[in-house]
């Protein structure tokens, strides 16, 4: 894509996003758009690890929930929005650092298992430590903040707030991906041992990436509780971690637009499916299996491939399904 066309596309997308409430109209749909934006931030954050660091985390819902719960509980205790949100981000950063130190004892499967277990700890606290977290009843968030005196109470204003956060996150990621640090991180994904021999501190690079990812996860967690005005243990469940992982993978990992496409796909699908049947988990599971079996590189490139593949099958070529690319990160140095 040449420069001018690219700017034109970005401009058109910005105009579409900025005018969305007017051409969508119905506040139900505006709310879905807000949901997509906040989950896109979450998916972008996880993609830093899954896509660029080659570290698959199944505990990210835990970090998301830590931000949400910290803010919700502090608000409930009577603190202001600014104090509660700042504290929530600080706590999330600390939790990310702890996650990182523990999970980086291993890479590959080990990393995944440890993050899963850490996510379950958060779930255990949210669900079982009822005297602190209210258990299954969750915590209500009675008011939304009013940054610069602008109330975010109605759907369009909340959408714009989400849009601003999303654009910030997206811009940060876009710069990050092209930056030397982004290149270092990808290097540790592809050849950890070589990176070490070239003078890179692989452990520290991964650590920083996890904390960076944790920061945006926390931001999206805050958006979520303000959007929902409620937080419950479900937010920290393994299903939630799996959903956001699905967003990252369905859109295609290690791309900027992939997680956003994934967020759209998953949020829309979840809303549509939930409107008709109560079988979201079943659908979620089926999507995983279909993606793995037929579209290992993500839904968008995968659909193209699936079409071609079925064409071959119809024509009796009997060509096997495309093999999946290896995705195991390099051995630790």
């Amino acid at each position: 894509m040449n420069g001018r066309l690219r700017y034109a596309t970005i401009g058109a997308a910005l105009v579409l996003l900025a005018t969305l409430p007017w051409w969508v109209g119905n506040s139900y749909y505006i709310n879905i758009a807000s949901q997509i934006l906040l989950f896109a931030v979450f998916a972008l954050a996880l993609n830093v690890l899954v896509g660029y660091a080659g570290l698959v985390s199944l505990g990210h819902a835990g970090l998301f929930a830590i931000a949400g719960y910290t803010a919700a509980l502090l608000l409930q205790a009577g603190y202001g929005h600014f104090a509660a949100d700042t504290a929530a981000i600080v706590v999330t950063l600390a939790a990310s650092a702890i996650f990182a130190v523990l999970a980086l004892r291993s890479t590959g499967i080990g990393f995944l298992m440890i993050t899963l277990a850490l996510g379950q700890i958060v779930w255990g606290i949210a669900y079982r430590w009822a005297s602190l977290t209210g258990g299954d009843n969750g915590v209500n968030v009675t008011t939304r903040p009013s940054p610069f005196g602008i109330s975010l109470a109605n759907a369009p204003s909340f959408y714009f707030a989400s849009l601003v956060v999303f654009l910030l996150a997206f811009a940060t990621m876009a710069v990050f991906v092209r930056s030397p640090f982004g290149a270092s991180l990808r290097g540790t994904r592809d050849q950890a041992r070589r990176m070490n021999a070239l003078g890179y501190n692989v452990w520290l690079i991964r650590f920083v990436a996890i904390v960076f990812s944790g920061f945006w996860t926390g931001i999206s967690g805050l958006l979520f509780i303000y959007y929902n005005q409620f937080v419950s243990p479900q937010v920290s469940a393994l299903t939630a971690s799996a959903e956001v992982l699905l967003m990252v993978i369905s859109g295609g990992t290690a791309t900027l637009l992939g997680p956003i496409a994934g967020a759209i796909i998953v949020v829309v699908m979840k809303n549509v499916v939930s409107a008709y049947v109560e079988r979201w988990n079943l659908v979620l599971g089926l999507i995983f299996i279909v993606i793995i079996t037929f579209m290992p590189d993500g839904l968008v490139p995968g659909t193209v491939r699936l079409c071609r593949w079925s064409w071959h099958v119809i024509r009796w070529n009997g060509k096997p399904a495309p093999a999946m690319e290896k995705h195991s990160p390099g051995a630790p140095p």
């Binding site: 590959g108 995944l112 299903t239 979620l284 995983f288 299996i289 290896k326």
Partner: peptide
């Protein structure tokens, strides 16, 4: 292939 295995087993777990 770690990631696909995880997704597949997780998918079955949900189903």
């Amino acid at each position: 292939q770690v990631l696909p295995q995880v997704l597949l087993t997780l998918g079955f777990a949900f189903i």
